[in-house]
């Protein structure tokens, strides 16, 4: 396997070819905020929190902003993850997310276990400068075990991807466009009526917010298991389960 060397925030780091800039940042012990990304799922570069500045080696072309999750590391790249401008953009992105949905942490199932809440802390958001939109969304509690509360959805599409890529059921997808986008079950029908759903709960496990939850969770009771896709993927690819011993 060939190895690439690049610079992340001034530190040289070596990563295997094919690694993403996010993985390279982690190798350099640099934490880049993410929301739509989840290890084990295909990256989509949608939330834009993991944007980093990249200079190509010696070509004098202007600095580019690229999503670390879905950009491959390259030899000699110079990556900056936390410039003042990036921090400003990230805070605005999180504020936009808070303003576009109905995120009321105080009584959310995911209070304390929410990646949106964490992201707000990470970007230093003490309030949203953007007016709240209060979209009229709905709750689908038709499934026997789970519930989806669209008010809390940030359209990261993790549920769509885990169901498609890991479970192979493709129960979820996105309907409509722009600010009307919405996660839909089956052919835009009540979740409980979708026969393809295996009730595996992976969508609930990976949801970064309280949008997907067990239907008996109340405020601050959600216990997410966001490491599951990575475990399942490595188990499948390496033919070895973590609970079977041996190094991960």
């Amino acid at each position: 396997m060939s190895v690439l060397t690049l610079w992340v925030d001034g530190a040289a780091v070596a990563v295997p070819a094919g690694a993403s800039l996010l993985e390279a940042s982690r190798a350099a012990n640099v934490e880049v905020p993410t929301l739509c990304h989840l290890d084990g799922l295909a990256p989509v570069g949608a939330c834009r929190l993991c944007l980093v500045e990249v200079d190509l080696p010696g070509d004098g072309s202007p600095t580019r902003l690229v999503p670390a999750c879905s950009t491959a590391a390259g030899e000699g790249l110079v990556v900056r993850t936390a410039t003042v401008q990036l921090q400003r953009f990230r805070r605005m992105a999180v504020e936009l997310l808070f303003a576009e949905g109905n995120h009321v942490c105080a009584f959310c199932v995911a209070n304390g276990a929410c990646e949106l809440q964490d992201a707000a802390v990470a970007v230093g958001m003490d309030h949203s400068r953007f007016p709240f939109q209060y979209p009229r969304r709905h709750v689908d509690a038709s499934h026997p075990h789970f519930v989806i509360d669209h008010h809390r959805c940030i359209l990261c599409t993790r549920c769509v991807r885990v169901c498609d890529e890991i479970e192979g059921a493709h129960v979820w997808d996105v309907a409509n466009r722009g600010s009307h986008c919405q996660i839909i079950a089956g052919l835009d029908q009540p979740w409980g009526t979708v026969e393809a759903c295996t009730s595996c709960g992976k969508c609930v496990d990976v949801c970064p917010t309280g949008a997907l939850a067990h239907n008996d969770d109340t405020t601050a009771e959600k216990r997410a298991a966001r490491e599951r896709p990575a475990l399942l993927r490595s188990a499948r690819e390496r033919q070895r389960w973590h609970n079977q011993g041996g190094p991960p």
Binding site: A46, C47, L96, A99, P131, Q133, V174, G178, S179, C181
Partner: peptide
């Protein structure tokens, strides 16, 4: 742009709405 945004990325989906307002 608000009407034609695909809704995938946050700045375009939510940012254009705020710009319009």
């Amino acid at each position: 742009s608000v009407a034609e945004s695909c809704g995938k990325c946050v700045p375009c989906r939510a940012g254009t709405v705020q710009l319009l307002q």
